[in-house]
Design a binder for these strands. Structure first.
Lengths: 172, 172
DNA sequence: GCGGAATAGTTGCGACTGCAACTAACCTGC
DNA sequence: GCAGGTTAGTTGCAGTCGCAACTATTCCGC
């Protein structure tokens, strides 16, 4: 069961990958449940609302939403289906490209976002942000970006707001 | 759409949380597909084999496996069902606690593990470990452990190998 | 040792997922 | 101005998930 010595020098990285998985899973699990309980909507839904509000013009294309919410195209379709059925978002086809579908907030979606934002951000801080210093956080983001770069996955992290320069984000 | 100033100081942390989500998702996605293609088994399955081999006595309890693989109890049950049906692992009830079920490798499970280990580790290095320095990796693990601690989720990261002191892990 | 609480694992069920196939719209070269 | 390829989004389908309810075993106070 021994592995080549050469592997030893990677074991720290593999530990880190595991830690990432666990934090992601555990923290999201806790946050998700707390949000669902307090705000009566799944955390997924709120993530969609955030992405819309943060996007230029307050609307996102389906493909962009798929990447931002870490889903496949069909996953995004169905997620938006649910939000639309609940009356929180609406689909609008753009006149420039009639294949594209933009997702925007409805009035009731905006109202829900406004109402739920503060408590949810509080949960996020309580469960995650309060325990990592800004320096640590920036370091982590930077180090992990290299990994995304190397896998040519950078598109997922940044250039996903293709049109205008982003206004002050809704969460910061 | 403005948030209280006080939030600004957490925005780095929220970025980090997003980066973590993206790395976890994107890297696992890539690794998972490459493994599935090259080795003809889902990456999930290999993770189970790793956890067994790394565990003391080369066997894990269902509950432990659930936490290690980031699943619910029922998720673990079904995952093991599949591996068992494929003849890679076997369930053994322990005489000390007749509620507990231990999962162990079969001969063919061990053979598969031995055969697939090196190529899969290579993929892991190629896609992740090679792009993070050991110092960075340790820093990340450490910082994220604080988050797990604060959420009383520490059990997930370490004391999950309750019995004997762990031998040299199978991956390092 | 007995009864109630806690723990380990499995199962039924509804919900969500990604893949692959599909439609519709756009784009490019000729 | 049309054929072939590409891109955006949706749908059928089979696979997986977590929750809640359930059985079986163990633990604990008395």
């Amino acid at each position: 069961m021994e592995l080549p010595q050469e592997l030893l020098k990677y074991s720290d990285a593999i530990d880190a990958l595991r830690a990432i998985g666990r934090v992601r899973w555990a923290v999201m699990d806790v946050i998700g449940k707390q949000v669902a309980e307090q705000e009566d909507i799944p955390f997924d839904w709120f993530e969609v609302l955030i992405e819309i509000v943060e996007a230029p013009n307050e609307r996102v294309k389906m493909t962009g939403l798929a990447r931002l919410t870490l889903r496949s195209k069909s996953g995004a379709t169905r997620l938006v289906d649910r939000l639309e059925k609940a009356g929180l978002v609406s689909r609008e086809t753009s006149p420039e490209d009639r294949r594209a579908v933009y997702v925007a907030l409805t009035d009731s979606g905006r109202a829900l976002f406004e109402r739920a934002r503060a408590p949810i951000v509080e949960i996020l801080i309580d469960r995650f942000a309060a325990h990592v210093s800004p320096k640590e956080a920036r370091f982590i983001t930077l180090a992990l970006s290299k990994v995304l770069d190397a896998n040519e996955l950078k598109p997922i992290v940044a250039p996903l707001r293709p049109e205008e320069p982003s206004p002050a984000g809704a969460l910061r």
